[in-house]
């Protein structure tokens, strides 16, 4: 396993998010896909937001993967991503809508995809 947050001397999450425990908008799910806009300047971004950008500039990842690679709690990651969406650095592709029932087509595609791996 990779070293934990504490050993790596990362700043405390509270400091990272300017004291906010939750994002301004509740738009992120664990599997919301995010990607960075390569043309946005990184000047003025906090070191943590730069780390998010550095990671996300490589391609699309889920919110959970961003949290996992950066070794940050999911809650903190959502705050950072929310700010970066607000500033136009990141765009998010919404996950499946949280409908009562997932749609028929989606379940069939999941099933087909799993069967193809057998």
């Amino acid at each position: 396993m990779s070293p934990g947050r504490r050993e790596r001397g990362l700043v405390r999450p509270y400091v990272v998010t300017d004291g906010r425990a939750y994002p301004t908008r509740n738009t992120f799910d664990l599997v919301t896909l995010v990607m960075a806009h390569p043309d946005r300047p990184l000047t003025g971004l906090s070191p943590e937001k730069r780390r998010v950008m550095e990671l996300c500039l490589g391609g699309a990842l889920s919110v959970a993967e961003v949290a996992g690679y950066l070794e940050l709690p999911v809650s903190v990651t959502k705050v950072l991503l929310g700010d970066l969406v607000d500033s136009g650095h990141i765009s998010a592709r919404s996950p499946i809508p949280a409908a009562e029932l997932p749609d028929t087509q989606l379940l069939q595609e999941v099933l087909d995809g799993l069967r193809a791996r057998l």
């Binding site: 799910d29 599997v31 896909l33 490589g58 391609g59 690679y69 996950p95 499946i96 989606l106």
Partner: peptide, 15 residues
């Protein structure tokens, strides 16, 4: 360097 990115064609993520 460690991240394995999604193909650019992926549109839907299920959980």
């Amino acid at each position: 360097d460690r991240a394995v990115y999604l193909p650019g064609t992926v549109r839907v993520a299920a959980k």
